[in-house]
């Protein structure tokens, strides 16, 4: 366990290295706020209705703003890293460490996400509130949704980790496979727009997709749209999916590393 936390701390420290990118990240969030603020005003304005599929314009805008505030937490940094480890052979040194390879990367991700949470959430909420009418729908809902976002991170991570295992057999296909996974995830997680906009027939299917619990569910918690039972159920489902993808990872990881040839030195 010590090794795990050591990795987290190390990753946190590494994330503090670049001051410049920290300030640039904040600027990026502001610009995202601007774009979504005007975009949804334009769509609602052209449509004419006050409520579209259960969400008012203000709620839709706040939905998008909150995603931008929080998505630094959910973002996984494993993208391409496993591919580089395998391609360059540095995986050999990582496999020698007394911590499961996947958990090493999870710890690194948690470290980086913790830094994001620490450094970006409060300033971006303040800016969004002052300039874009962002508001909380209750401190309780906000805090629960932050917790849900950390679960989202782990869910997102283990899905990405499983996809990364492709590299052990087919190096360089990660770009294709990872790409398809990301596009699918972006749409069906609710990152592009609330899943409410999908036709009714999709709503039933979404309950069974892990992507629903990555962005859409935590943001709905923040908006106060879920009941207490639904919130508890969402955490259980997130945990279930995390365990499920972790198990798949362990199952395939053992087989793939045994047949892995490595890169000659």
């Amino acid at each position: 366990m010590n090794y795990f936390f050591a990795f987290i701390v190390q990753a946190f420290k590494e994330a503090t290295k670049s001051r410049f990118s920290f300030f640039v990240n904040m600027l990026g969030k502001i610009i995202f706020f601007i774009i979504n603020f005007y975009l949804w005003q334009a769509i609602f304005g052209y449509d004419g209705r006050e409520v579209i599929n259960g969400l008012r314009m203000e709620e839709t805008i706040n939905y998008m703003l909150f995603i931008s505030i929080m998505n630094g937490i959910v973002h996984t940094h494993i993208h391409g890293k496993v591919m580089m480890d395998v391609k360059e052979g540095t995986i050999a040194t990582k496999l020698l460490k007394p911590l499961d390879y996947g958990l090493q990367h999870l710890a690194i991700n948690l470290g980086k996400s913790s830094f994001v949470a620490f450094s970006e959430i409060i300033p971006s909420i303040i800016i969004a509130a002052i300039f874009f009418n962002f508001r909380l729908y209750g401190l309780f809902y906000f805090l629960i949704s932050v917790a849900s976002f950390f679960f989202s991170l782990m869910l997102n991570f283990f899905i990405d980790l499983n996809v990364s295992l492709v590299n052990f057999k087919f190096i360089d296909t990660y770009h294709a496979v990872g790409f398809i996974k990301n596009v699918f995830k972006n749409i069906f997680s609710g990152e592009f727009f609330p899943l409410n906009f999908f036709p009714q027939v999709f709503q039933g299917i979404f309950k069974f997709l892990p992507t629903t619990y990555m962005i859409y569910t935590p943001v709905m918690i923040y908006l106060g749209k879920l009941s207490a039972t639904d919130i508890i159920l969402s955490f259980i489902i997130q945990s279930g999916f995390i365990l499920f993808f972790y198990s798949i990872y362990k199952f395939f990881y053992g087989r793939l590393t045994r047949s892995f040839e490595g890169v000659g030195v």
Binding site: A42, I180, N186, I187, F192, F197
Partner: peptide, 25 residues
């Protein structure tokens, strides 16, 4: 394959938005 997926998933959100709203002016 990536390109075909990318095309599909780029236009798909527009289809959804146009199905739920009047779309973009």
């Amino acid at each position: 394959v990536m390109d075909i997926f990318w095309i599909f998933f780029s236009v798909f959100p527009f289809l959804i938005i146009y199905s739920a709203t009047n779309g973009f002016p």
